[in-house]
Write a protein that binds this DNA or RNA. Structure first.
Lengths: 202, 202
DNA sequence: CGACTTCTGCAGCGATCGCTGCAGAAATCG
DNA sequence: CGATTTCTGCAGCGATCGCTGCAGAAGTCG
């Protein structure tokens, strides 16, 4: 319900908030929540600390919005994968997406949802819990998708969808750790292929 | 070659350095390298900052020694697992050890080698790289063990030991992430069991 | 134009960071 | 014992942390 058809009165901000958020996301991705200082963030965003606070609230809110951006951007392969017609297709797309996203050249290696804040000091507990919920949410959505596959007869009726979802997400998170360790894309993709070669038997 | 049979001259330190290191390891484990402040570390160790520096050098050296302690303690299951007689036994023991260690009650959840410093600021780059090397070293030792299994005929001759080692370590690191997210021990162990049920076919 | 609103750059807040100088206490030597 | 050596507690170092008050610039309104 937008009542004003022209922009808000007053001086408009002199930077592109979307661009700035994208750059902030990359800094969080590379250095983690607590490892990304305001100085480094604002420098990458091309704005002053004051402008960042005016536009995004504070560091934690900035991270929240950066995580949303990450979910809709680099991590969008998950939502797309869930729409694959078969459970095997879903699993294959998720692992391939994880490998691709965590080993993109000229991008930080690893996954923001994993290395954003696995362990943290007290001040980072909020973000750490947010990311834990983010990861568990991904697992839950996958479980629901596999449940549907069981209902549809795509997976054997004795399949445990929760266990299967936990297995695939465990591999995906493990891939993110390996990528952060510098393991290359090809090796991880080969490993993902091998892991799904025994598919119907899990 | 110890030449002095009596202790060194001068006042001996008034605390147990082994105890202090153990407590420091637990703090690093829970909060990560950068998330563990000197104040929190020294409080847990029961000594002053000055004593810590005299005994361990600085924060980074303290972390190095804490990681050694972790390797010989909570993570000793890896070395034990490598001595299992069969490759399947090795893999089973590694995953079971990972599940147990990352979900121990009254201990930090997750793995120090993973959440100690996955992403970090500039000042944590040394430790981040150290941990990446630590993880890759575990993978290499597992690969060598699987290579031996191939040579001994325990694994089929067309098995790729590197790929298999990468798969098992990926699962182990994924388990560490899941544990850090609060996933319970039983669910993870069930998942590990299921992952190895198709063993000879990878 | 003048009135109004918002954004921007500067400077700096209090708190915490890892780390250390100093003086005295405490232990081991001859 | 005195001499020597090391450890300990206190206080505080400079740097950085996330964050903000203020004044003026810069834009949108009637």
């Amino acid at each position: 319900m937008k009542t004003k058809q022209s922009g808000p009165i007053g001086r408009p901000r002199g930077f592109d908030a979307d661009d700035a958020l994208e750059r902030a996301m990359l800094v969080f991705w590379e250095h983690g929540y607590e490892g990304a200082s305001l100085a480094r963030l604002t420098e990458a965003m091309g704005i002053s600390a004051k402008s960042m606070y005016a536009a995004f609230g504070n560091k934690e809110e900035l991270f929240h919005k950066a995580l949303e951006r990450y979910t809709e951007g680099p991590s969008a392969y998950l939502a797309r994968a869930l729409e694959e017609p078969t459970a095997l297709g879903v699993a294959t797309a998720i692992l391939a997406g994880a490998v691709r996203t965590t080993t993109r050249p000229a991008h930080p290696h690893g996954c923001l949802g994993v290395q954003g804040a696995l362990a943290a000091s007290d001040s980072g507990r909020g973000v750490r819990d947010l990311l834990a919920a983010w990861r568990n949410n991904g697992c839950s959505r996958l479980r629901e998708r596999f449940q549907r596959a069981v209902d549809d007869g795509d997976l054997p009726p004795d399949t445990d969808p929760g266990l299967l979802a936990r297995y695939i997400t465990t591999l995906a998170f493990g891939i993110a750790v390996q990528a952060a360790s510098g393991v290359g894309r090809d090796e991880l993709q080969e490993m993902a292929d091998a892991a799904l070669r025994t598919w119907p038997l899990l």
